[in-house]
């Protein structure tokens, strides 16, 4: 190989892209993220991203893939870091176009979707805790979300942005992860079948590592919470600690309320839910109940997503 010549490694996406459902699908999707991450750090190596087999994708997973690709592009010195084999499935092709993936990898694309379950995907990214991007995204559903729910989602989004900017990329580990991308978050909304999904993610150190250093709760408070509830120290239980300590200890001078605002938004919608995924852990709150789960592999970051009911859009006839 001549110096500077780019060789392309084929990275194939599985047919189903779902990081937070079945364990086998999680493993395949996280392997995709891992390969993108690993190969993008190699000198003179580009990635031939093969999406041809993809037939289904969940919006939180789409968001994390887009985030990982953005970081790969920011960190590489390869002039054309990605080549792409687009999905055989037209709907999937339109989804990737809709979330700006082709634009980000400089793949020519003229696809514009008219499908109701595709055209409502919206994506934004930033490095500050500024509400306008999240607010204007929510305003596009004006009149279809109850006022209190719209406000709750906005407050959850802004707190998630603030957590990212303050805590997600802290320390020497966080410093490496944010190289070339800053303290970046990615935000996506999707509407389908009367449900609105709003997801926000970062590629930082994860809640288990950031919680003790955030100062929001003391290390002792977290340790006592886990011990008092007979919980082992793992990613899912770290999320649980951040949620439940935030619910019960709101009067903390100079500090926020942990993940309290983030969970609160889901409680404002009948049948609403919030899922928080961080590294190996997932913590879900739905119908007043919570569930914690750990997977074998890590998504290397944190994602929060809300699912709430939304009124029909008469203009779309949906």
């Amino acid at each position: 190989m001549r110096p500077g010549r780019t060789i392309y490694v084929r990275v194939e996406a599985p047919a189903s892209l779902d990081l937070f459902g079945r364990a086998d699908l999680r493993s395949a999707a996280s392997h995709l993220l891992s390969r993108i991450r690993r190969h993008s750090r190699r000198a003179n190596v580009g990635i031939r991203l093969d999406l041809s087999r993809v037939v289904e994708i969940w919006s939180p997973t789409a968001l994390m893939i887009r985030a990982e690709i953005d970081r790969a592009i920011a960190g590489t010195r390869v002039a054309k870091p990605f080549l792409c084999v687009r999905p055989d499935d037209d709907r999937m092709d339109e989804v990737f176009a809709q979330i700006g993936l082709y634009d980000s990898i400089d793949e020519p694309c003229e696809v514009n979707s008219d499908r109701d379950d595709v055209k409502h995907w919206r994506l934004a990214t930033g490095v500050l805790s500024e509400g306008e991007q999240g607010g204007s995204m929510l305003e596009s559903y004006k009149g279809r979300l109850a006022d209190r729910l719209e406000r709750g989602l906005y407050e959850g989004i802004v707190e998630a942005m603030t957590n990212t900017v303050h805590h997600a990329y802290e320390g020497s580990h966080g410093n490496r992860l944010r190289h070339m991308i800053g303290k970046r978050w990615w935000l996506l909304s999707q509407e389908r079948d009367g449900l609105l999904t709003v997801a926000i993610c970062d590629l930082g150190i994860g809640i288990a590592e950031s919680l003790p250093r955030s100062g929001t709760f003391t290390v002792d408070a977290v340790r006592q919470f886990l011990k008092g509830n007979g919980l082992s120290s793992n990613d899912a239980n770290a999320i649980r600690a951040a949620v439940e300590l935030g619910n019960t200890r709101t009067k903390i001078a100079g500090r926020g309320r942990g993940l309290h605002d983030i969970v609160e938004a889901a409680n404002l919608s009948a049948g609403g839910s919030v899922m928080i995924g961080s590294n190996r852990g997932v913590f879900t709150v739905a119908d007043g109940k919570s569930y914690a789960r750990n997977f074998d592999d890590s998504v290397r970051g944190t994602i929060i997503w809300w699912v709430v009911r939304i009124a029909d859009n008469e203009q779309d006839g949906a």
Binding site: S129, G131, G135, L138, E139, E150, R151, G152, Y154, E155, V158, E159, T162, G256, R257, H260, D261
Partner: peptide, 8 residues
């Protein structure tokens, strides 16, 4: 406004 986060 659209709302207020607790940090704000």
């Amino acid at each position: 406004t659209m709302g207020y986060g607790s940090s704000f």
